[in-house]
Amino acid sequence: MIELKNISITLNDNVILDDVTLNIEMGMNTIVLGPSGAGKSSILKIILGLWKPDNGEIIFEGKNVCKMTDDEILQLRKKVGIVFQGNALFDSLTVAENILYFLPGKKKLSENELKYKIEELLSFVNLSGTENLYPEELSGGMKKRVAIARALAFNPQVVLFDEPTTGLDPINTESILELIEKLKQNGTTSVVVTHILDDAIEVGDNFIVINEGKIVEAGSLEKILRSKNPFVNEFFKRFIEENHNPFIRISKEVNK
């Protein structure tokens, strides 16, 4: 379990997170929902120790991340993959180099094994044949999928996805969501930040709703939907209404 306890952080006099306490259960898909600027991406950066909180602690495998030495933090990060919201691909490296850059023990692998690994990962994200392209030659959605392949390259125990489906077409969205499900079956823990409710509900086991740096609700989908919190109701209103929308209901039935 990854625990955040009473995390607060202020940057440039801006309160980014305010007394955030949450648990991420291993082997489950945790969804972080919230409007733009709520602090969703910040939570991921805190979990990885990229940002140091002003207050509070992060417990990963029983250890406080804030008190770890640099070496311990590096070891922790090797267990956690992340897909950044802006992809953060290395633009001086090709797709294949981006994916293999951090692979531990890659020096021990033969040329063919590496090639096989790349092909496997790229076909996983529907990007076969793009090995030698540079990030600037890819579309936004393709970059996102390379970033996903990079995060999965070293078989991390935990993957943090920051808006993995934003800007993708329905087919690629579906394949990313299937991928997250597949990872779960292999025992991987996913934390998915998103504001697309359909996607959240398709893969989510646990939900965390955050607004203005504070947790407003956390728990199962039922608990969230039954919430009395006005912000949560407002946030989910459109989704609930859409499900009552006859067009959507009929198209779902027809497609079954």
Partner: peptide, 17 residues
């Protein structure tokens, strides 16, 4: 430019310094 496009964060996130 790497700092602004989060590439430095990505390096650190993947356990490199």
């Amino acid at each position: 430019a790497m700092q602004l496009s989060e590439q430095i964060d990505a390096l650190r996130a993947f356990g490199a310094s």
